[in-house]
Amino acid sequence: MELTNRQKQAMTTKRKLLYTAYELIREQGYPALTIRRLCEKSGVSTGAFYHHYSSKEDLIAQGFASYDVVLTEFLESYEEPDPVKAIRHIVLSLNQYIYDNGAQFAKELYISQLSIKDSYITRKDRSYYLAVLNYVEQAMDQGLFHSTMNAGGITDFLLRVGRGTILDWCLHDYAYDLMEQSARDLDFLLDNLTAGRG
């Protein structure tokens, strides 16, 4: 189904606000982010902001949703015959998205997810979860994973490891390379799941 011009405009406005917020957070920190400053810098009216978001916390909380939009677009043309490699790529791509938007963004994104009742980050209907689950099921069907857990359990475990590395990075005041550590943690887990493969 093709989007209407109005829907496309709404998506453009939301992305503009979100990415301008990321920029302001990187430059000045989250406490300095105000809706007025955000609207001025992005060229979006305050009314348009409140049409899409209820608060700046709501805007930041939707950071993972914006990643899912990008992931969905990417997966439309992604071809990887090895489901284990596909899982690695997708899980690391989220951590790369967090890293690329800066340490302050990661911190505020996690704070926002902890402070709202329906945390988007753990939803099982989001594109990120469903993509990893799909490849986990493929890996299990092909006999590549050796585990007593079912596909949902393995997917939950993989995503906990990914989130845990980001949180640990924040707790250690960003003192190490997030992507190097994320790859090491994920590779350790995948190596154990595929032990005896081939």
Rank of each mutant, 00 (worst) to 15 (best):
L3N: 12
Y120N: 12
A103V: 06
T4D: 10
K117E: 13
G198D: 14
L75N: 02
T165P: 00
Q7R: 10
E180Q: 11
T4F: 07
E73P: 00
T165D: 09
K41N: 08
E180Y: 02
L171D: 12
R160L: 10
C170L: 12
I35N: 04
D185Y: 07
C39V: 10
N134D: 10
Y99C: 09
L133S: 09
D68F: 01
D58N: 13
I90W: 01
E27N: 13
E2I: 14
E57P: 00
T12V: 11
R163V: 01
H89A: 14
N192L: 08
V44R: 05
A195E: 14
T72L: 07
M11E: 09
Y110P: 00
A48I: 04
I87N: 00
A175H: 15
Y135E: 04
G162K: 01
N95S: 13
A183Y: 00
Y128A: 03
M140D: 03
Y176G: 03
R36N: 15
Y129F: 15
D68R: 11
S45W: 10
L94M: 12
T72A: 14
T155Q: 02
T194D: 06
D187N: 13
D125C: 11
R36K: 14
G196P: 07
F64H: 08
L33H: 02
M1R: 12
S115E: 15
L144C: 05
A139R: 01
D118I: 06
D187S: 02
L18H: 11
P83L: 03
Q138P: 03
N192H: 11
F49V: 09
R88T: 10
Y22Q: 03
H51N: 15
Y78S: 03
S42N: 05
L24T: 00
A86Y: 01
L193V: 05
I25L: 07
G63S: 11
G198I: 09
G164Y: 04
E27S: 11
T46K: 15
Q142C: 06
Y174T: 05
S119T: 14
V161E: 01
S182A: 15
Y174A: 12
R26G: 05
R26M: 12
T165L: 03
K14I: 06
L167T: 12
E180N: 09
S77H: 12
I111C: 05
D68Y: 03
R88Q: 13
Y120S: 11
I90M: 01
A61W: 01
L24Y: 02
Y19T: 12
L18C: 08
E23T: 13
N101H: 14
L94H: 13
S42Y: 08
G102L: 08
I116Y: 04
F145G: 01
D177F: 04
G164P: 05
K14N: 03
S42L: 08
T194H: 02
G152E: 13
